[in-house]
Design a protein around this nucleic acid. Structure first.
Length: 558
RNA sequence: UGGGGCGUAGCCAAGUGGUAAGGCAGCGGAUUUUGAUUCCGCGAUGCGGAGGUUCGAAUCCUCCCGCCCCAGCCA
């Protein structure tokens, strides 16, 4: 609960605008999240989703989920389904307000004719190349198309025939008649409709012409009664066109567009084009590869939606381009999981430890706390015996001063079990340590010495006779540099060590029934969850995020 | 060189004329049966720069510098 209140959205310029609008008499707030179904949602979209749904909820309004499906050559039903699933998973509900820009194609068409009749739009026969050449550039004005002054009757006739499918794809377009000399390129007679003989996921083969984003978006907002159309900064110079269309059309409402900076994350790429490329080239296993920044991937990796919401709230909303440190995201994940994830023990890189004074063939069960941060989580019994596994990293034959885990002659605590002292080290012919011979103190059962003596370290462990094997997938940043692509080619910046598979791990018996997506803390290691690939005879766990590790820091510095 | 934006600590980000919030990261220290968590402490005489207005400027004015977006029949 506290994590939700801690991550509550603060003040921001959008909320300021809405509040002053309401103070000025605007009766309700209607927003919309308008994804194009041409890819999976990622954490950047989480920000847009949260702003739109969050603001609507906060001010008693509503938020629509509207698919911006105006380009049938790129959109697919698979994406529509995935987007709906992900928005719900993130924790938002559009209720009955699920819409598609394609629902408005007929109305949009009528409005296009309206523009033609009022002399505000014309059919242009220029090819794409010619049109670009005549559009001018950033410093030079464009030139009027030779078709710019066609009669209303001819425009109407041509546009109707475009709709009827009389012309091939790309043959003609409908353009707004605004100003070819505008400093704003979007006002140089922007294309409103293009001919596309393509099957649409929802309208099938009904249409041969499709509206562009500019012609569909604002009008869709107006049809739905959207009051605040919130989008990202790159649409800023589309706003004059957005307003122009609203002004020149008999739309039922007057929505207003406001822009905010999109979310960027260090060591991450958040662009559908790049993500699509990673999937298409097989650089990742799919849209839900746990290394991806997609919501589907974060879910599979074990990141709770509440952690994403908390992170987005922390990052804030502003109009300045920025790149948020991935560490801030990890902090949100850890903070939530620390309070909620049950603890278990798992040995990632096992080293056998034999307790020579523990009776052979004997065994016992010890009580372990499920979550020290949450007494209500209770306790569990874990098997203990003569042969155990501990982490290879927890032993050093010749340790430096600041290493206080196990080493020859040193006593440490086995969590929730006993104090053990290392008596001998067994090596193979290659000189590698294969086994640790220890003794235990029966009077330290549970982890405390009756004489009050202390040990510096506490190790996690599993009973060799009871611990199933497991595959552990450790994830590191997908990119090796904080600003992938800054060098020109983001593919060249891929981190070759983004996935590390450990196949010989041994885990606490209770982990055999772990359920995908449910967070677990492997004590002293990090937060993990069972992967969807996991099966009873082949357990697989994903590392969501590691615990903070000041020892690693000390080592790195040394 | 056209149009539109943005510049507050390493990274986000409040602040809207009254003397620089908060978070992340980092660095100390305390506690600790997770080298985790938790707790305590530390950072901008300064708000891209230079002038100006004012009793007073991150906030107002002028000029300059830097960065981002726009030349798809993508969104």
């Amino acid at each position: 609960m506290t994590h939700e209140t801690a991550g509550a959205p603060g003040r921001d310029f959008i909320r300021d605008i809405i509040e002053s609008d309401m103070a000025a008499g605007k009766s309700q707030v209607v927003t919309r999240f308008p994804p194009e179904p041409n890819g999976y949602l990622h954490i950047g979209h989480a920000k847009a989703i949260q702003i739109n749904f969050g603001v609507a909820r906060q001010y008693g309004g509503r938020c629509h989920l509207r698919f911006d499906d105006t380009n049938p050559t790129k959109e697919e039903q698979e994406y529509i389904d995935a987007i709906k699933r992900d928005v719900h998973w993130l924790g938002f509900d559009w209720g009955p307000h699920l819409y598609y820009a394609s629902d408005y194609f007929e109305q949009l068409y009528e409005w296009a004719e309206h523009l033609i009749r009022t002399g505000k739009a014309y059919v242009d026969d220029l090819g794409a190349e010619e049109m670009r050449a005549m559009r001018g550039n950033l410093t030079e004005p464009g030139r009027d198309s030779p078709y710019r002054d066609r009669s209303v009757a001819e425009n109407l006739d041509l546009f109707r025939r475009m709709r009827a499918g009389e012309f091939p794809s790309g043959a003609r377009v409908l353009r707004a008649r605004i100003d070819m000399a505008s400093g704003n390129m979007n006002l140089r007679d922007p294309v409103l409709y293009r001919i596309l003989h393509a099957e649409h996921p929802r309208t099938g083969s009904k249409w041969y012409i499709y509206p562009t984003y500019d012609f569909a978006h604002g009008q869709s907002d107006a049809i739905e009664g959207v009051t605040h159309s919130l989008c990202s900064l790159e649409f800023e110079d589309h706003r004059p066109l957005y307003n122009w269309l609203i002004e020149h059309l008999p739309v039922p409402s007057r929505p207003r567009q406001y822009e905010f900076a999109r979310l960027n994350l260090s060591y991450t790429v958040l662009s559908k084009r790049f993500l699509t490329e990673l999937v298409r080239q097989g650089r990742v296993s799919g849209w839900d590869d746990p290394r991806m920044p997609t919501l589907a991937a974060l879910r599979r990796r074990g990141v709770p939606p509440a952690a994403i919401r908390d992170f987005v709230n922390r990052a804030g909303i502003a109009r300045a381009n920025s790149v948020v440190d991935i560490a801030m995201f990890e902090h949100s994940i850890r903070e939530l999981l620390n309070k909620t994830a049950p603890r278990r023990m798992a040995v990632l890189r096992p080293l056998k430890l034999v307790i020579e004074n523990y009776p052979a063939g004997a065994g016992e069960e010890l009580e372990a706390v499920n979550n020290p941060e949450d007494p209500a989580a209770g306790t569990r019994r874990i098997a203990f015996g003569r042969e155990l596994y501990v982490e290879q990293d927890d032993f050093m034959e010749d340790p430096p001063k600041n290493f206080y885990r196990l080493s020859p002659g040193r006593e440490v605590r086995l969590r929730y079990a006993y104090f053990v002292t290392c008596r001998d080290v067994v090596k193979n012919s290659a000189g590698e340590i294969t086994e640790l011979i220890c003794t235990y103190d029966p009077l330290t059962r549970g982890g405390n010495a009756s004489d009050g003596r202390k040990v510096r370290a506490t190790l996690h462990w599993v009973s060799a006779a009871h611990a199933p094997r497991a595959e552990i997938r450790l994830y590191n940043p997908l990119f090796a540099r904080p600003d992938p692509g800054a060098g020109g080619d983001f593919m060249a910046d891929l981190n070759p060590h983004s996935l590390e598979r450990l196949t010989g791990a041994r885990v606490e018996a209770a982990l055999a029934t772990a359920i995908p997506e449910e967070p677990i803390q492997f004590e002293r290691q990090g937060y993990f969850c069972a992967d969807v690939d996991s099966a009873p005879d082949h357990l697989v766990f994903n590392r969501t995020v590691g615990l903070r590790d000041s020892w690693a820091k000390v080592q790195g510095a040394g």
